[in-house]
C-alpha cells in the first residue's frame, strides 16, 4: 500500500497531524526499522506516516547518575557514549544486541518501546532498571512506569494523541543483559535476561524477554538473591526459579522446554557479570 509522509518541524505540528488522521491510518516514523518492515509485511496498514526526525528529541543527557534518553536518539549514539558503557553496562549490552550496526545508526529507543515486541532486547533491561517513560500530548506531560507502560504484545499505555518524548533511567546501577539467538546480528533473541543490583544494596531485579505476551520482572528469581555477592546456592535457586516461573511458550524461534533450560544458564551469567561489575566499581574495600 502506498503511503504519504509528513515531517513536522516541532511537537505542536506533530500533534496536529497525529489527531487529524483516523486511528490506524496514521503511524509515527522514527528510525523506521520496525515500521517499514511491518508495512511491507501487512502488519501495519497506515497510509500516512509522521516522521519524528526533526523533533528536538534526538539527544540524551546525564543529570548526575540519572540518564534521560530522548525518544528519537539513535541507539548507536547511546552505545558510543562511554558513560553508558561504564555506568549502565546492562543497557549497553542490550543496545549492542539490537539488529546490526547499520540498523542501530537509525533505530531508536522510542521505536522499540512504541512497537512493544515481546522479543525486544531493550524492554527487559528497562524493566530491571525501573525506567520511566515520559509521554507528551497537547494535554501536557505524563510519566508512566515502564512496568505499566508495556501492556501486552504490541500494546502500550500510550494514548492515541501522545508521543513518547523520552525515557528516564533514575540511577546508574551494576547490571547485565545476556541473550541467546541463532545468529548474533539481525536475529531475535530466543531468551534475554536482564539483571540490575540495588538500591537498597543487595536488592536484585531480574527481568526476562522472549516470553509471552510481554517481557516481565520475575519476583521469584529476585527473592532467591539476598546478598550483593550471591553464593553459588543463591544463584542456583534464582536460575531454577526463573526456569519454573517464566511465562515461556513455544514459537518458531524455540520450544518452551529449550527456553526453560536456556534461562538457567543466562541467569547465572547475568548475575555473575553484575556482581563482578559491582565489585570492580566498589574497589578493594567494597565489602559484602
Amino acid at each position: 500500500m502506498p503511503f504519504s509522509l509528513s515531517t513536522p518541524k516541532d511537537p505542536a505540528e506533530a500533534f496536529r497531524l497525529l489527531v487529524a488522521g483516523r486511528p490506524g491510518e496514521t503511524a509515527l516514523l522514527a528510525g523506521g526499522t520496525a515500521l517499514l518492515r511491518d508495512l511491507d509485511e501487512g502488519q501495519n496498514h497506515a497510509t500516512h506516516l509522521i516522521s519524528l526526525r526533526k523533533l528536538p528529541w534526538n539527544r540524551h543527557a546525564w543529570k548526575g547518575e540519572a540518564l534521560e534518553i530522548g525518544s528519537t536518539e539513535p541507539l548507536r549514539t547511546l552505545e558510543n557514549d562511554p558513560l553508558v558503557r561504564a555506568r549502565l553496562p546492562g543497557l549497553h549490552q542490550a543496545i549492542e544486541a539490537v539488529g546490526s550496526v547499520a540498523l542501530r545508526h537509525r533505530a531508536t529507543l522510542g521505536g522499540n518501546l512504541g512497537r512493544a515486541s515481546p522479543a525486544s532486547d531493550l524492554i527487559p533491561v528497562l524493566l530491571a532498571l525501573e525506567a520511566l517513560v515520559n509521554l507528551r500530548s497537547p494535554r501536557g506531560q505524563r510519566v508512566v512506569d515502564i512496568e505499566q507502560f508495556i501492556i501486552s504484545s504490541r500494546q502500550t499505555a500510550r494514548e492515541p494523541d501522545e508521543l513518547i518524548e523520552s525515557v528516564s533511567i533514575p540511577r546508574a546501577l551494576p547490571s547485565a543483559y545476556v541473550w541467546q539467538r541463532v545468529r548474533p546480528s539481525n536475529d531475535i533473541s530466543q531468551v534475554g535476561v536482564a539483571v540490575a543490583l540495588g538500591p537498597p544494596p543487595g536488592r536484585w531485579r531480574v527481568a526476562l524477554g522472549g516470553v509471552s505476551p510481554r517481557p516481565v520482572r520475575l519476583p521469584e528469581a529476585e527473592e532467591a538473591l539476598v546478598s550483593r555477592r550471591p553464593s553459588e546456592a543463591e544463584v542456583e535457586l534464582a536460575a531454577q526459579a526463573a526456569a519454573r516461573h517464566a511465562p515461556f511458550v513455544t514459537d518458531r524461534r524455540a520450544t518452551e522446554g529449550y527456553r526453560r533450560r536456556l534461562v538457567t544458564t543466562l541467569v547465572r551469567r547475568a548475575v555473575r557479570s553484575t556482581a563482578e561489575h559491582r565489585a570492580r566499581r566498589a574497589g578493594p574495600k567494597g565489602g559484602r
Binding site: L5, T7, L29, T33, S51, S100, A102, R106
Partner: peptide, 18 residues
C-alpha cells in the same frame, strides 16, 4: 548498506525523504 553522512545505513529500510 550505504554511508549517510559517514554512517552505515540499510538503504532498504530508509525512506529517501528522510
Amino acid at each position: 548498506t550505504v554511508l549517510v553522512d559517514g554512517e552505515s545505513v540499510l538503504s532498504c529500510l530508509a525512506l529517501t525523504h528522510t
